[in-house]
Amino acid sequence: MVSDKIFKRIETPLFNKEICKLKAGDEVLLSGVIYTLRDQAHFRMVELINKGKTLPICLRNQIIYYAGPTPAKKHVIGSCGPTTSSRMDSFTPALLKAGLKGMIGKGTRSSEVVRMIKRYSAVYFIAPGGAGAYLSFKVRKCSIAAFKDLGPEAIYELEVKDFPLIVGVDARGKNIYERMTKFK
């Protein structure tokens, strides 16, 4: 099994003091409550923000996870790895403005999102994609928090313990994928 000696441990809710200590490339173990949020839930949240309505979950100092888990079998949740982050890029600035501090996903972010992460002192983590079975055992509790009608795309509240992550973009705007921007 994977050794966890060199990981930094962090907990939710996430505050600037801890965020400032995180550097792009750091290996992190995350514990606490996080919320799944993917395509359609992003769409609805940003629509609510634009209309000035109350959100079904409070984003202040929270971390969202771009994921849509499989249903629970014996454990509290099924497979639950990350989905591609770049699909959420256009929605991200509005959520950061609403107080969001962290995002977990896989892959690159737009330069606009990286700029916004820096402006709002937030952080973007990458999780190991395609390791959903492994990650499911890092989840202790799971319940639906909002948008139940969206099925796998609903907002789930997850309580995680030692969830393994790597800092992708830190609060200084440093990006581990900088070497890859030349590809785009």
């Binding site: 079998k73 790895g81 190991p128 390791a131 079975a133 492994y134």
Partner: peptide, 28 residues
């Protein structure tokens, strides 16, 4: 070393999925 660790995690993931009879990846 970090890439190696993550590759090992994928091998572990395959073992866990088979043992627990759950999906290898949530995107089925």
């Amino acid at each position: 070393p970090v890439a190696k660790k993550m590759l090992q995690l994928l091998v572990d993931n395959a073992k866990i999925a088979e043992k627990e009879k759950i999906a290898i990846c949530q995107d089925t």
